[in-house]
Design a protein around this nucleic acid. Structure first.
Length: 310
DNA sequence: GTATATGATTGAAG
DNA sequence: CTTCAATCATATAC
């Protein structure tokens, strides 16, 4: 209650002349014979405040208590209020509301898409579906063990992510509470406005969310590595059968002047070879580049290998 | 074991 | 988007 009024001082009370809380000798502003004594007194108090951080904790605590009970304390407090009122404009420049960090949003979206963030079960199956989709169209049930392995590892990442996130959240709350208590405690000796507390809390939250961003960043990396380890089609590459290779080669060599099959031709070839259009495109891409690399030395027309000659 | 062949991926360029 | 070029990761030959 009393604290509340103290907190308000900074933006409600200017010019405290005649304040009922002030000691009598402060209210009559004439410098009497004890003027030097008073100056000395205030100087002592300020000196004590300045050196309080150099003292041990117990010592400081005792000193603070002594200061709080000092007869000059209310006067000093009011002076601080006034000084603050004059300087309060200077701290208003700080950015009040920054826009949401685009990188953070990107990370959040990705974690959500991978099923690391978001709801427990739904997230998992969504990730599995994404994995199935990424593994390259209808590849059949043959890789289900690999997928369950993938899911297990993803769940591990997910659990680590959530425990860490929770830990940071808790630490952030604890720290915020601590700082607020500290500020409240300090407001007994110096004026602290609610705005300042709010600013401090914002600073703390920003710091902690930057730590969380690092966590999200590394989680994303872990997921990407996992994906590339389990879902990269290169890992389970199979050669096309001889017949398919023959068909493709036949087309290639009979269109050697322009070995670029149209979309329809690719579909046709894909159908004949029982592979996808994308695979046909890959094959022709590889074939063209590897043929070109060899044609320079003209190795041996009998072998259709594209072996690089060096 | 190594060396080569080959399908897939990636990133730049058009 | 497609293609090229380099590269990866596996398959196959040796």
């Amino acid at each position: 209650m009393d604290e509340q009024t103290r907190l308000m001082h900074s933006h409600s009370g200017v010019g405290m002349a005649g304040h009922p809380g002030l000691p009598q000798h402060m209210q009559e502003g004439t410098g009497g014979s004890d003027g030097d004594g008073r100056k000395q007194d205030i100087g002592d108090i300020l000196q004590q405040i300045m050196t309080i951080t150099d003292q041990s904790l117990d010592e400081a605590q005792a000193r603070k208590h002594a200061l709080n009970c000092h007869r000059m304390k209310p006067a000093l407090f009011n002076v601080l209020c006034e000084i603050k009122e004059k300087t309060v404009l200077s701290i208003r420049g700080a950015q009040e509301e920054e826009p949401p960090d685009p990188q953070l949003m990107r990370l959040d979206n990705m974690l959500l898409a991978e099923g690391v963030a978001g709801p427990e079960k739904g997230g998992g199956s969504a990730a599995a579906a994404a994995a199935a989709a990424a593994s390259g169209g209808g590849s059949g049930p043959e890789n289900s063990t690999e997928h369950s392995d993938y899911r297990t590892k993803l769940t591990q990442i997910r659990q680590i992510y959530h425990t860490e996130l929770e830990k940071y959240e808790q630490a952030c709350n604890e720290f915020t509470t601590h700082v607020m208590n500290l500020l409240r405690e300090q407001s007994r000796t110096r004026p602290i406005s609610p705005k300042e507390i709010e600013r401090m809390v914002n600073i703390i939250h920003r710091k902690f969310s930057s730590i969380q961003m690092q966590l999200k960043q590394s989680t994303c990396e872990a997921v990407m590595i996992l994906r590339s380890r389990f879902l990269d089609a290169r890992r389970k590459r199979r050669n096309f059968n001889k017949q398919a290779t023959e068909i493709l080669n036949e087309y290639f060599y009979s269109h050697l002047s322009n070995p670029y099959p149209s979309e329809e031709a690719k579909e046709e070839l894909g159908k004949k070879c029982a592979i996808t259009v994308a695979q046909v495109s890959n094959w022709f891409g590889n074939k063209r580049i590897r043929y070109k690399k060899n044609i320079g030395g003209y190795p041996s027309p009998c072998y259709q290998s594209d072996r690089r000659i060096q």
